Computed example of a mutant assay.
Amino acid sequence: MGYDKPLPSPDPETRPFWDGCREGLLLIQKCSDCGQVRFPPTSYCPHCRSGAFDWIRASGRGRVFSWIVVRHPVPREVYAGDVPYVVALVTLDEGVRMVANIRGLEPEDVAADMRVEAMFDAVTPEITLPFFVPAAGSSGGE
Rank of each mutant, 00 (worst) to 15 (best):
H72E: 14
V69T: 11
L89G: 11
S59K: 08
I68C: 12
A80I: 12
R71P: 08
V69N: 05
V74C: 13
G81T: 04
G62T: 03
F65G: 04
F65T: 10
H72W: 10
I68A: 14
G62H: 02
V83Q: 10
V90P: 03
V87A: 01
R76A: 15
Y79E: 09
G62F: 00
P73A: 08
R76H: 14
W67T: 10
G81E: 11
H72A: 13
E77P: 11
A88T: 03
E77W: 14
F65D: 10
E77F: 13
V83T: 12
V69R: 03
P75W: 07
G60T: 00
G60L: 00
V78I: 15
V86H: 05
S59G: 09
Y85E: 09
A80M: 12
V69F: 06
E77H: 15
V87H: 02
V70F: 08
I68H: 07
F65A: 14
R61D: 02
V90E: 06
D82E: 13
V74E: 15
A88M: 04
P73K: 06
V90T: 00
F65P: 03
R71W: 07
Y85M: 09
D82F: 01
T91W: 11
V86C: 04
P73C: 02
S59C: 07
G81S: 13
P73I: 08
R63F: 10
E77S: 12
S59E: 07
R76L: 15
A80T: 10
V83G: 04
V64S: 09
I68Y: 06
H72Y: 12
V78A: 10
Y79W: 14
F65K: 04
A80N: 14
V69L: 03
V83F: 07
Y85A: 05
V78T: 15
V86P: 03
R71Q: 11
Y79V: 03
A80D: 12
L89D: 13
P84H: 11
V90F: 10
S66D: 13
H72R: 15
V64L: 03
L89S: 13
I68F: 07
S59F: 05
D82V: 06
D82W: 10
V74F: 14
V86T: 08
R71N: 13
P75A: 09
I68P: 06
S66A: 14
A80H: 15
R76E: 15
R63P: 00
V74A: 14
G60H: 05
D82Q: 02
Y85G: 11
G60F: 06
G81Q: 10
R61S: 08
G81P: 01
Y85P: 05
G60N: 04
P75H: 02
Y79S: 05
R63W: 09
L89V: 14
V69W: 00
V83K: 06
D82A: 12
A80R: 15
